[in-house]
Structures are given as C-alpha cells and as structure tokens.
C-alpha cells in the first residue's frame, strides 16, 4: 500500500487541499496524496495577493510534466500572502507539501464549515486506495 502523510490539526478538502487555521488566517496547500499523484511539480501559477476568493473557487494551478491541476480555495476570504519561493522551486510541494510547500494564505471571511477533519480525510484516502 502507498503511504500518505496526513498531519493531524489540519483541515482538508475532497479535492486534496489542506488548510491550517490560526487566528482567522488559513495557510493552504495541496496534500501529500495530491503531490504524489501528480509526481514532479514543475510549475505553480500563484494567485494575486489581495484577490477575494470564494470557497471552492479555482485559486491557482500546479503543473506536473503532463498534467495541470486546479487548486481550489478551501475557504472564502482574501488572499493575503503567497509562497513566492515556489516560483523558482516548485518542487518544494513534492519535498515538503505541508510546510515549505505551502501555496497561499487567506484571511477568512466566513466560517470554515464543510471542511474535512483529519479523520474524515484519512477515510477518504483509504476509500480511494481500496478502490484501486
């Protein structure tokens, strides 16, 4: 079986984004499962700081050698910071999806309803893996 890191304390989406919520700011990225499925990430198209986004809206894209993947915002709010290191080192998402490979920070406008807990997301991954 493939092994995927799913840290506790974070929230997740069904589209394989993660968000770390502290003091009304959510740090967002894509999960270990997402980066392993894509394999080598060669380009990240970052969002603009200041952009207002709705939960579920496409915020940016990540590209592997073959595939383009949309990254959806896990929350509604305003983009307040982006990880500019990803411009020159997109592979940080592969090597460190939950830390150095974070993608954007969002100032949360609405409550974080509808996000998956660690346990929910783990169940989702187990289901995907067993369905192979």
């Amino acid at each position: 079986m493939r092994k995927y890191e799913i840290p506790s304390g974070l929230f997740y989406t069904e589209e394989h984004e993660w968000v770390d919520i502290k003091d009304n700011i959510g740090v967002c990225g894509i999960t270990d499962y997402a980066q392993k499925s894509l394999s080598d990430i060669v380009y990240v198209e970052l969002p603009e700081v200041g952009r207002e986004v709705k939960k579920g809206e496409v915020v940016c894209t990540v590209e592997s050698v073959k595939a383009v993947s949309d990254v959806f915002s896990p929350l509604s709010g305003k983009i307040v910071d982006i990880n500019t290191r990803l411009k020159s080192e997109p592979s940080l998402i592969n090597s460190s999806p939950y830390s150095e490979g974070w993608i954007f920070k969002i100032q949360i406008k609405e409550s974080s309803d509808g996000l998956l807990s660690h346990d929910d997301y783990k169940k989702l991954i187990d289901k995907i893996e067993s369905g192979r």
């Binding site: 392993k36 499925s37 394999s39 080598d40 060669v42 592997s64 050698v65 073959k66 192979r132």
Partner: peptide, 19 residues
C-alpha cells in the same frame, strides 16, 4: 500511480516521471 490510456489501466509513474 495509474492512469487510463486507450481503455487500459497503465502506470503513469512510479514516484517521479522525471527521474
């Protein structure tokens, strides 16, 4: 990691396509 290609389930990569 598998992909669908021409009706077949085939390996897309084994971790790193570039490697």
């Amino acid at each position: 990691h598998f992909t669908e290609f021409a009706g077949w389930k085939l390996p897309l990569h084994f971790g790193s396509a570039i490697n």
